[in-house]
């Protein structure tokens, strides 16, 4: 499943948790790890000045500088790199972060992109327009492979995948996320939990919902999941199917905790040009990312189609 992993990093503390997971995965699954760092945002029209991502200083770039940054990155991850032997490469680039990550992913075609937490310190500047919606949103929206995000330290103490939770809202991409989860669970021999949350957040805003209706919805959801996903699970026994009511992202986080899962898989719907109303699950995804106690893997429609095609 994971032969080639692209680890996009700022090479700062913000990415330390992601680094732990990325290196552990590469080690455990014998993958080749490409460590990719975007070192500067281009500025100043056609001037040669870039803004250093880490220090926010204005610097001028030449090849020597890039080599020096590569060396810095290597030093930063030295203790992890020892275990990988020669199964890694370090690349740096100049440009808008999400764009350069997507560019290199397009060239190297990894099986997975691993990303760290936000680089919020950059977003308060005038460059916020360039990186709004966070780098993650844009990478996971457009990547042709799943994107794994680790933002919390709690999510990074991790010894391989054994219990996987897949959140579904029955959309096309969510179905693809389920497919991917099944594939992953089969190949890594994991326990799989399929989960749906009935959104009752309207209650808090005074919307009337009768408990019977809610329970009816839960029943329908369970039935729907079984109808949709059971055929796909043929021959696979170690699974469970659940539906809870609540605020979707909270329920997913709680469910994951209860299941002691080590991976949550969710669909990524929101793309930049899409209408805001469709971005609900996107925001759920972001909420889960910052709250979950394990890494979160996002699957977009493009990846979904690929999974479909493979079937």
């Amino acid at each position: 499943m994971f032969n080639k992993i692209l680890f996009a990093t700022s090479a700062t503390e913000a990415c330390d948790h992601a680094a732990r997971v990325a290196f552990a995965m590469a080690e455990k699954y014998n993958a080749h790890l490409e460590i990719f760092h975007v070192l500067g945002l281009p500025t100043r029209a056609y001037s040669q000045v870039v803004i250093e991502v880490k220090t926010r200083e204005r610097i001028e770039i030449d090849e020597g500088y890039c080599d020096w940054v590569k060396e810095e990155v290597r030093m930063y991850y030295e203790r992890f790199l020892e275990k990988l032997g020669d199964r890694y490469a370090i690349e740096v680039a100049i440009g808008v972060t999400h764009r350069e990550i997507l560019r290199t992913a397009r060239n190297t075609n990894p099986d997975l992109i691993v990303m760290g937490g936000s680089t919020h310190h950059l977003e308060d500047s005038a460059y916020r327009q360039l990186i709004t919606g966070s780098t993650f949103q844009r990478v996971s929206g457009a990547a042709h492979c799943p994107v794994l995000v680790v933002t919390r330290p709690a999510a990074s103490f991790w010894g391989g995948f054994s219990k996987i939770v897949v959140g579904t809202d029955f959309s096309e991409s969510a179905d693809a996320a389920v497919d991917y989860g099944i594939k992953l669970a089969r190949s890594l021999d994991c326990e799989l939990s399929l989960f749906h949350a009935v959104d009752i957040s309207g209650l808090a805003m005074g919307q009337v919902m009768i408990q019977d209706d809610i329970e009816e919805k839960l029943r329908v959801a369970r039935k729907k999941m079984r109808y949709r996903y059971l055929p796909k699970l043929e021959g696979f026994t170690d699974y469970s199917i659940d539906a809870w009511e609540g605020i979707p992202y909270m329920e997913i986080v709680k469910y994951t905790r209860e299941k002691q899962a080590d991976l949550v898989i969710m669909a990524h719907h929101a793309r930049r040009f899409e209408e805001k109303k469709d971005a609900r699950m996107g925001s759920n995804l972001e909420q889960v990312i910052v709250r979950a106690g394990c890494p979160v893997l996002s699957i977009n429609r493009t990846v979904g189609r690929q999974v479909d095609a493979e079937k």
Binding site: R44, A45, Y46, S47, Q48, V49, E60
Partner: peptide, 9 residues
Amino acid sequence: GGGGFNGIG
């Protein structure tokens, strides 16, 4: 910033 002004360090 016109006329090249933007780009000249």
